[in-house]
Design a protein around this nucleic acid. Structure first.
Length: 539
RNA sequence: GGGCGCGUAGCUCAGCAUGGACAGAGCGACGGCCUCCUAAGCCGUAGGUCGCGGGUUCAAAUCCCGCCGCGCCCGCCA
């Protein structure tokens, strides 16, 4: 249900009929119209523009030639009818795309389970959870998974700390913060390399006592970590433990499959493949499996459970992702789509748990909610739930509005920004809309034909773009498109709100405007949902 | 040294994939707007060699090449 998208396709089709091979519709300035078709590449563009303007004849679209451009402007009535159709058919679900019958397995976060999430890793989580919502909304069946790297060096260091609590001067850890402390202190100690290697080897072999010990502790950390995320509205459908790939033999199977392709070579027991002249080791000289091999096994496993794999990874994993893809390709296995994001840094440098240069997500969220609370109390319109939605929303929005590949420099003042390009600005537009609708009592039947003001036209056009924004965001895996879009919707709504009265206007304008406000409310609410942000009705 | 990413207003960023009409926002600064549906809002002013240099094109922030700066990676770590 995308009336505007359909209309645009009609226009392109008509332009093809009129002789344009590849009609390009570009956005243009208000003064020129809604869309423009640049014709410079055609023969005699100026007279062509005039001819096209004469012959286009698409109902509801005014065509005008201006130099080598064919400018198109929708008549307000046409926009109003499309919006009425879209919202009428989809209701609260306006923007949602038809089910595709395709399963997406979305892996994100997958942080080493050694402590709390900090504001750097949070970027992975927030992008991941937003993608979950965007993909689901655009018609996929989404399953989210957290890959638990329990066979890695980081976990081994934590385990070493847990085995040496007394000498570290620590007691039995009771919560995730205690575990963080164990991890930091263990690191600071510089545990002997052979002991770490020994832990990894014995755990990978599934030595009974150690296996239970590690699983018990890491499970506790994971439980708390996931519980915190759940509080933020971030949900995983499951976890997948790296160690299982070693214990159930699937890492070995992956190696055998690669061997059958004849690309595996050996140095003693250390298996490797050559990619671009580089040796990529798959096993150690003691025969134990390396990360990339388990990653291959993991992706073969995932491929069997879905139609499309999506991974959210930090920029430090770029090369690994490339190698993984090459290996999967050589097996003729499906490759994942990967979203790479750049690091978040602090003004004083790179985040580092070990160096104590770290801001935890929990503290950021807490601070944001406190600030929102102060403001909410001053206004006396809404309550603590709104404060929570606003504070948490501001944090999420500030991450999601920037393209993943751009670096983020974390500053408290920016992260806690509540004005301008921020969640509260969008939420505020929603609250204003809700307020009008509440006073209106109900949404009357929509009789089209009376929304003719520029601000109304412009808002309607913007609202109608929502389905295509959802589609594009899902296609290129970019939550920032949704954030950008919502800011524009809020801009247009505010312009409308500033200039026109809804409740005090005469019928039939009044009823039509109430419907327009309702459509805005739905789009904003759904858009915020896609970013994992709640839309309070009062604030 | 090599690979990948980033470089647009004082700061944070849109625009770049599919090149088009005078480069857009927010924050900060300055000046206005609440007897009127929520002022977390609106309007206005100031602020730009789109990193630098070439090239392609009727047209380049956008495409190509070179250079500079920053980030990430280049482990029998994960």
């Amino acid at each position: 249900m995308d009336p505007l998208g359909q209309k645009l396709r009609d226009i392109q089709e008509r332009l093809r009929e009129l002789g344009l091979e590849r009609p390009r519709l570009v956005e243009t300035k208000e003064e020129f119209g809604d869309l423009a078709v640049p014709l410079h590449r055609e023969r005699e563009p100026v007279s062509l523009a005039r001819r096209l303007a004469r012959e286009l004849s698409i109902p509801g679209v005014r065509a005008e030639a201006l130099g080598p451009y064919l400018n198109l402007r929708f008549e307000p009535r046409a926009l109003e009818e499309m919006l009425k159709e879209g919202v009428g058919e989809m209701g609260e679900d306006f923007g949602r795309l038809p089910r595709k019958g395709l399963r997406v397995l979305l892996e994100h976060t997958s942080a080493n389970p050694t402590g709390r999430l900090h504001v750097g890793r949070a970027r992975n989580t927030l992008i991941g959870d937003s993608l979950r919502r965007i993909l689901e909304f655009s018609g996929y069946d989404v399953y989210t998974e957290y890959y638990v790297n329990d066979l890695g060096r980081q976990v081994a260091i934590l385990v070493w700390g847990l085995l040496n609590l007394e000498s570290l001067g620590l007691g039995e850890p009771r919560n995730i913060d205690d575990y963080s402390e164990v991890y930091v202190k263990a690191n600071a100690c510089g545990p002997p390399e052979d002991e770490i290697r020994d832990i990894i080897r014995r755990y990978e072999e599934g030595e009974a006592g150690l296996k239970d010990f590690v699983r018990r502790h890491i499970s506790k950390i994971m439980e708390e970590l996931l519980a915190e995320l759940e509080e933020y509205g971030i949900r995983f459908d499951g976890t997948f433990w790296e160690s299982d790939l070693a214990w159930d033999g699937s890492a070995r199977d992956a190696l055998r499959r690669l061997e059958r392709r004849g690309i595996v070579k050996y140095e003693g027991k250390a298996a490797y493949v050559e990619i671009g002249g580089e040796k990529i080791y798959l096993t150690r000289s003691d025969g134990s499996t390396l990360y990339v091999l388990k990653d291959v096994a993991y992706h073969l496993n995932k491929a069997g459970r879905c139609d499309l794999m999506v991974n959210v990874l930090g920029e430090d994993h770029k090369l690994e992702a490339k190698v993984l893809s090459e290996l999967l390709r050589s097996l003729g296995a499906p490759e994942p789509r990967v979203v790479i994001y750049s690091f978040v840094s602090l003004p004083e440098g790179r985040l580092s748990t070990r160096a104590g240069r770290v801001v935890y997500l929990k503290d950021l969220v807490q601070e944001a909610i406190e600030r929102a609370s102060a403001e909410v109390e001053k206004r006396r319109i809404s309550g603590p739930e709104a404060a929570r939605a606003i504070g948490l929303g501001a944090v999420k929005f500030n991450y999601l509005k920037v393209q993943p590949q751009k670096p983020i420099s974390f500053r408290w003042e920016d992260a806690l920004n509540f004005e301008g390009k921020a969640a509260p600005y969008v939420q505020y537009a929603h609250a204003r809309a809700c307020s009008i609708l509440e006073k209106a009592g109900s949404v009357p039947p929509w009789v089209t034909g009376s929304l003719v003001a520029d601000e109304e036209r412009s808002l309607m056009f913007q609202l109608l773009k929502f389905p295509s924004v959802v589609e594009k965001a899902a296609e290129i895996l970019a939550p920032n498109l949704v954030a950008e879009y919502l800011l524009k919707v809020a801009d247009r709504f505010n312009a409308f709100y500033q200039k026109h009265r809804v409740l005090q206007s005469e019928e039939p304008v009044r009823s039509a405007r109430i419907n327009l406000v309702n459509a805005t409310r739905i789009v904003v609410k759904n858009g915020l949902y896609l970013l994992g942000i709640e839309a309070p009705e009062k604030m």
